[in-house]
């Protein structure tokens, strides 16, 4: 018992160390794209800078140093918390992230919860009722989810639940934003609205924020729900053909126990991979959703930065997404190890 938990700890530490080279690789790529390709001087000049000042700017920002030295300077700045100035947000990058990042993460987590909580049971039901009506309905729902453009779905949701419900005189969903700042008093603590509402025991704010979550989370979650459902269905079907399922049945177990105890845990292994990758995808997928629902998240900031070639902001966004991807995969690997004993020692 004891040595197996120790093995688990060693595995976790090994996996964390293995993700460091990935992060360094991403940093190198962002550095090359931003400061080596093209003229890095462009970052610091505007139309009023005279050519005589160039040399001084080069000296000040270390641009006359060799490239590898510049890379170390870049890394030093990153680790020192100097991520540059964001022209788009008109303030430093770090506080910008602190302001926008929680909104995105919160939306992604709520969407993910919706997708996982609905998608996994749907996939199981679809697999166990293969070729029955339930299965066909589920498959159509899933197929619609993976093939529908996110912006079109978002606009349709908005048209129905905001515009048409309003026209029909029904209670309608808010059109965008994270909370109704006109009615609700809210001073951010962590910038996670739901978390802040719980911390301050503000029921009105919590409910109001929840209402605001409905459409964006539904929109973003639906696509991932579809992916998870399809993955769960196919891996469940695969597992149900395995010999150990026959063995479980030959023991005289009920079908429910066979499926939920013996098959589910094995079928979860590929599904967890997809969930991990999807979570990274949620952050980038949030860009369109955030734009349509005026969600004050990273996505809108990143789009604006890309349109105005705001290099420090683009870099920050890239690094952030990379870190989220790497940590999502790390978490997936850890879940793997608890699901499948063969992986821990392999």
């Amino acid at each position: 018992m004891k040595w197996s938990t120790m093995r688990l700890r060693d595995y976790v530490i090994r996996r964390i160390f293995l993700s460091i080279p990935v992060i360094i690789g991403v940093l190198a790529i962002t550095f090359v794209l931003a400061y080596v390709v093209g003229n890095p001087l462009a970052l610091y000049v505007d139309e009023r800078t005279t050519p005589d000042a160039y040399a001084a700017i080069r000296l000040e920002h270390g641009l006359d140093e060799p490239i590898y030295v510049q890379f170390f300077l870049y890394l030093r700045n990153l680790f020192a918390g100097d991520w540059g100035y964001s022209n788009t947000a008109r303030m430093d990058v770090i506080p910008t992230i602190q302001r926008y990042f929680p909104a995105t993460i919160e939306l992604a987590i709520v969407s993910m919860i919706i997708a996982v909580v609905i998608g996994i049971p749907l996939g199981i039901i679809s697999a166990t009722k293969k070729d029955k009506l339930t299965d066909h309905v589920t498959r159509v729902i899933a197929l619609a989810g993976v093939s529908m453009p996110i912006f079109w779905f978002a606009l349709m949701l908005k048209y129905l639940f905001y515009f048409q419900f309003f026209m029909w005189g029904l209670p309608f969903l808010p059109e965008g934003g994270r909370y109704s700042f006109i009615y609700v008093d809210y001073t951010p603590i962590t910038n996670f609205v739901l978390l802040d509402a719980v911390l301050t025991l503000n029921g009105v704010l919590f409910f109001d924020a929840l209402i605001h979550f409905v459409m964006p989370a539904m929109c973003l979650g639906y696509i991932f729900l579809a992916i998870i459902t399809r993955m769960m269905r196919s891996s469940m079907l695969e597992v149900l053909k395995e010999d150990y399922i026959t063995l479980a049945r030959s023991k005289g177990l009920t079908e429910r126990v066979v499926i939920y105890r013996h098959a589910l845990r094995n079928a979860m292994i590929p599904t967890v991979t997809v969930i991990g990758l999807a979570f990274g995808g949620l952050i980038t997928g949030a860009v369109l959703t955030e734009t349509i629902f005026s969600w004050p998240g990273l996505g809108r900031w990143a789009v604006a930065a890309i349109l105005t070639s705001d290099i420090p902001s683009i870099n920050a966004f890239t690094i952030l997404v990379a870190i989220i991807f790497v940590s999502a995969n790390l978490i997936v690997d850890l879940i793997y190890a608890t699901l499948d004993p063969r992986i821990r020692y392999g």
């Binding site: 395995e242 010999d243 150990y244 026959t246 063995l247 479980a248 030959s250 023991k251 005289g252 177990l253 013996h262 845990r265 094995n266 699901l339 499948d340 004993p341 063969r342």
Partner: peptide, 18 residues
Amino acid sequence: GNRIAIVFQDPATYPNPV
């Protein structure tokens, strides 16, 4: 599993790995 039990062919694939 109680009155009639069966032992299957392949010991590699019949026990549940998890």
